[in-house]
Design a protein around this nucleic acid. Structure first.
Lengths: 109, 109
DNA sequence: GGTCTTTACTACGCCTGACATACTACTACT
DNA sequence: AGTAGTAGTATGTCAGGCGTAGTAAAGACC
């Protein structure tokens, strides 16, 4: 077992995606590549997980989607983070620090 | 929102429980108190979560249960960690380090 | 003596997020 | 012609966490 189980990352996929939307709009495929690259191939998000996260986050008001013709002439669905999404992201960052502190009481290294 | 969402801790409840069984056998109520105390009241495991974790882990061979009459004369179900449970715990500790490393690439603090 | 709190569980069923599987469609390369 | 990469959609399953409720016995308090 080398890799991260889905039960662990669960609850942080949204956060990871929002992080990648902080500075500029993006779309599914690009985000999945960024995650893979930034994690040095240690985490590869599943397509279905990614796209269902987009749907959920749009419903929750954390992102807004729009269609755009890319440089290559193809239509893509882009996502933009909302103010509410930024707030949510920062909240999750604070939650992460708390979680880390708690979990590490029970980890022997 | 102050506290840890269940989606975050998911996948680490078993690890936390196993940690508390490393040095001596214990039972549900005591374990829930230990978690509360060791996390300085930051994490309180739900009863149903705890007992279903025991059931699952026994099925997976990570713990073994036995009934014992406690000092107060009442019958309790105690749990003992198995060798396989110890291995699993250590695996989860390694996984935690990896997860931490990955997630922190996407956290702004 | 009656009620409340703590201890120590069991039963049942719902919800959510992750994921398996499958399918579409277009481009570029070989 | 076939494969790999890009960019998704659709559908359904599964596991873990949790809400709700109920049981039962011991001790505390008023």
């Amino acid at each position: 077992m080398a890799g991260i189980s889905s039960d662990v990352i669960r609850g942080y996929n949204d956060t990871i995606i929002l992080f990648l939307l902080m500075d500029r709009d993006s779309y599914g495929y690009e985000i999945s590549k960024s995650i893979k690259q930034m994690s040095h191939d240690k985490y590869v998000i599943k397509e279905t997980t990614l796209y269902s996260a987009f749907t959920r986050m749009e419903k929750n008001g954390y992102v807004r989607s729009y269609s755009k013709i890319a440089e290559n002439g193809k239509r893509r669905t882009y996502y933009r983070i909302t103010d509410s999404g930024r707030e949510y992201y920062l909240e999750k960052c604070r939650e992460w620090e708390l979680t880390k502190e708690v979990v590490e009481h029970f980890i022997r290294n």
